Simulated scan of single mutants.
Amino acid sequence: MTEIIDATATAAGETPRRGQRGQGGRRGSGRPPTSERGTTRGLAIGGPPRVDLLPGEVHSNRQQRRVVRRLWVGVVVVALGVAILAGWATMVRMSAEQELLSAQGETSALAQQQGQFRDVRIAESQTALLEAAQRVGGSTELDWSATLESVRSKLPQGVQITGVTIDSASATSEYAQSDDPLQGRRVATLTFDAKSAVLPSIPDWLTAVSGVTGYVDANANSVARSDDGSGYTVNMTIHLDERAFDGKYAAEGTKG
Rank of each mutant, 00 (worst) to 15 (best):
T90K: 00
A250S: 06
L148S: 12
W205Q: 09
K195R: 13
L130Y: 06
T213R: 15
Q64S: 07
G229A: 02
P156M: 04
I5F: 03
M1P: 04
K255F: 04
P156D: 09
S210G: 10
Y215R: 01
R26A: 11
S150F: 07
A9P: 03
A96H: 04
G231H: 05
G138R: 07
S230P: 08
D227P: 09
S35M: 15
V223W: 00
G46S: 14
A251F: 10
W144Y: 10
L206T: 03
P181C: 15
S95Q: 10
I122R: 05
L43H: 08
S230T: 14
Q112D: 05
I45E: 10
H59F: 09
I4V: 15
I84E: 14
P32S: 04
L206I: 12
V58N: 07
V234M: 14
Y232S: 07
A96L: 02
A169V: 15
E14L: 11
Q113R: 12
L130H: 06
P16H: 03
G158C: 04
R118S: 07
E124S: 05
A79R: 10
G19V: 07
T127P: 02
E14W: 10
Q157C: 03
A83Q: 08
S125H: 04
R37T: 15
V73G: 04
E57F: 12
M236V: 04
S170I: 03
L54N: 12
T191A: 03
M1Y: 05
Q183V: 09
K248V: 13
K248A: 12
V120E: 15
V216Y: 04
E252H: 06
